[in-house]
């Protein structure tokens, strides 16, 4: 069986500056991968390119999602194929209610899966059930998309959308940043609830803390646009203890050989 997501030697630039300098990664169905790395290492760029942001320029490489050429797909086609990005900074859309937004999105995704669209009543009960899992306020659906949400509410909203849309691959871009421990637990419980043999996760984070609650199968260290280390959970703990600086010297030694692989 081939991997759900296959990234081959991906090189990406923005405004002429190369950010990802040859990333390769396989994520199999059911796996949880954590990608760690210092600020500016390219973690969020990887998430953005996978989701289809147009300002990034792919210089080289290939990404297959369930066998399809992901880089040729429009952002909405990727979403309908089951790729979900939990945004680090979810955007506010004034005047558009969460209910309108999410029902539109959900019905698009359902249509792509060959399912019947949900009418407003069905949608409401479907959504409310998932809201209760995350302990969300009932007025959430009536509020404008992310407008006036606190940082924690926004992140919880992203996880709620993950529960709603049931993607095959969810990419969590620094979902833990700015969350207190209680909010972190709620977010993690939402993710853990969704873990299944068919569904994969890429958890992008700066800190090890989140990985106490979402236990990854594989941990990668992204450094200066390349994956310099891959290991098990213990790698995250090592990073926690030693920081990222030790990779700097090691990176220089290790990189050439990794790059040639």
């Amino acid at each position: 069986m081939s991997a759900l997501l296959q990234i081959r030697n991906l090189r990406v630039a923005i405004e002429g500056k190369e950010i990802l300098r040859g990333v390769s990664l396989d994520v199999y169905a059911g796996e949880v991968h954590a990608i760690m790395g210092p600020n500016g290492s390219g973690k969020s760029t990887l998430a953005a390119v996978l989701a289809g942001r147009e300002e990034y320029e792919v210089l080289e490489g290939e990404v297959l999602f369930d066998g399809q050429n992901l880089l040729e797909m429009e952002p909405e086609e990727r979403a309908r194929a089951g790729l979900f990005l939990a945004f680090q900074y979810p955007v506010e859309i004034p005047g558009v209610s969460m209910a309108t937004f999410l029902r539109t999105a959900l019905n698009e995704v359902r249509k792509a899966r060959g399912q019947e669209p949900l009418d407003p009543i069905q949608f409401l009960s479907y959504a409310r059930e998932r809201m209760s899992w995350l302990g969300m306020e009932p007025d959430f659906l009536q509020r404008a998309v992310n407008e006036g949400f606190s940082g924690g509410e926004k992140k919880r909203g992203e996880i709620f959308q993950l529960l709603l849309l049931e993607p095959r691959l969810a990419i969590l871009d620094e979902t833990d940043s700015g969350l207190d421990i209680d909010a972190l637990k709620i977010v993690a419980s939402g993710v853990n609830r969704m873990r299944s043999p068919e569904r994969s996760f890429i958890v992008i984070t700066h800190y090890q803390r989140l990985l106490n609650y979402i236990v990854p199968d594989v941990v990668h260290v992204l450094f200066d646009g390349r994956i310099v280390r891959t290991g098990g959970r213990e790698l995250a703990l090592e990073l926690e203890e030693r920081g990222y600086d030790w990779l700097r010297s090691e990176g220089e030694l290790v990189l050439p050989t990794l790059g040639e692989q």
């Binding site: 989701a51 289809g52 952002p75 909405e76 945004f87 999105a105």
Partner: peptide, 12 residues
Amino acid sequence: MLFYCRQRGISE
């Protein structure tokens, strides 16, 4: 805003 909507499966 457009990108956020599209990432959720909504056409442009």
